[in-house]
Design a binder for these strands. Sequence first.
DNA 1: GCCGTTTTCGGCCCGACTGTTTTCAGTCG
Length: 579
Amino acid sequence: MPDPTNSEIAAALEELGDLYELDGAIIHRVVAYRNAAKAVRDASVSVSALARQGRATELPGIGATIQEKVLALADDGAIPAAVKLRARFPSGLIEVTRLPGLGPKRARRLFEELSIDSIDSLRAAAEGERIRTLKGFGPKAEESILAALADAGAGEPRARVVLHRALAVGEQLIAALREHPASERVELAGSARRMTDSVKDLDVIATASDPGALARAAAALELVEAAQIPGEAGVRLRTHTGLKIDLRIVAPEQFGNLLQHFTGSKEHNMALRDAAVRKGLHVSEYGVLDDSTGHTTKCTTEGEVYALLGLQYIEPELRENRGELEAAAAARLPELVQLGDLRGDLHSHTTASDGTASIEQMGMAAREAGYEYLAVTDHSASFGFGEDVSPLALRDQVERIRSAELDGITLLAGSEVNVLPDGSLDYPDELLTELDWVIASVHSSFRMDAEAMTGRLLRAIEHPLVDAIGHLSGRKIERRAPYAFDVERVLEAAARTGTMLEINASPDRRDINDVTARAAAAAGIPIVINCDAHRVRGFEVARYGIATARRAWLTAAEIANTRPWPEVQALRPRHRAAV
DNA sequence: GCCGTTTTCGGCCCGACTGTTTTCAGTCG
């Protein structure tokens, strides 16, 4: 039996937390399990392996007890405490606690007093008006339970929206509000401001000379399908795309507090407040209360909030409670890479494969995006959609790239070569040696087992003519999970061979992700941020690659293509000489 | 269950909302 993966361990710890909560454990113990689950999920190394070495306790929120439980899971496939509790609480009961309005306390009473142990028995009890017989429950409770059941069964479990779709609408709304005469400051908040992969809804914070007028104007915008009644405090909107947007309007003197609060993340804010309490301060969306004076300080900017707590300003992308508070306290936050730092792009397509523009058109678009160089990397021989480039055609393509006459940008002849199921590439080495740049990607046979996929990737990484691996995990945000492979072994191999790893900036990929990118850079692996552009407007997505890099704490120095092309070349092991 | 420049024991974020309440517990973000 293979060791449990980090996500399996995290799920087991979450479940145990849920079970302890049903069992009536003090909430702090339950929270401890949830914090541990998050620490496992954020870990870039195998927590099973760490636990075997007795080092899992180095992760924040994991102590000796939870390490023991991880070891039990790894050795016996189960945690004894969870087995015992599962016998007492039917699994359907945990689903009942997930319904809005029902938590562990009320679910447990339903179980003990009405034998409700599943969604089905809950529905039957509500319909039979038996729930209102319980003390503390009334007709309203029954009604809201039935409404929650109807929502859950409506088949529209409102999936999260990929970030760029939400921003496409949100940025229009913000631009419109900024133009309104009653508005003063209008800023995006929430997870979208932190540039997460996907979002549930959007939060917008504003100050206004006439709040009511601004809220009414927002509700009247063309992109709004429905709005609740606008008020002085703001308005809740739903756009025609189905996206929910909360506009909150506040007094200017509290703008910093509110923006900080609603930017989150929840975990960041909880840790921030915890640290504040130890200094005798209490942080909320209304200000910072000082225990010793009883005085609440309001902040017009977020910088003031952090400064009051003795912290450096923390960029939104870092606010995930992944060590940013400790770093800010020590004034050791990294200077994050910015969009303007990119000097070139090393992954693009033309009409030679599945792109829509010519070499020249893509070159001009890249130049307009501010790049000094662009690698043209059409798909290789076996791409498989009738868009493949045969070896002969690639030689022609190299000629065309080399002879393209474009001022102000250097075009590089490259290819995005398929990594075949056995880990070999689908161009011969003699052909690859003629190229300036080779990026290798997996485009087929995603469902191999982890061992085989790891071997496949290792072979590509170790190939002396491969400069970088494209979209390493193969994930599509909200649509396709990464394929199974051993991230640690892959990073170890890339670090050893000097093979670069791509952050593919395409907003539905953002692959490698923030957690992996941070681990890769820490291992000394050069990262490249590429747009994978298939059309002239394809370079607009660079901001999403930059966002992932920033969420990974990366500086410009850790991104290869912030350098001029000759320096990128020098970074590569290019074993070319050895071939 | 975790954790420590005020603690190895005694704490553990903050405020809003809801329903069933006569002062609040449970839930949510």
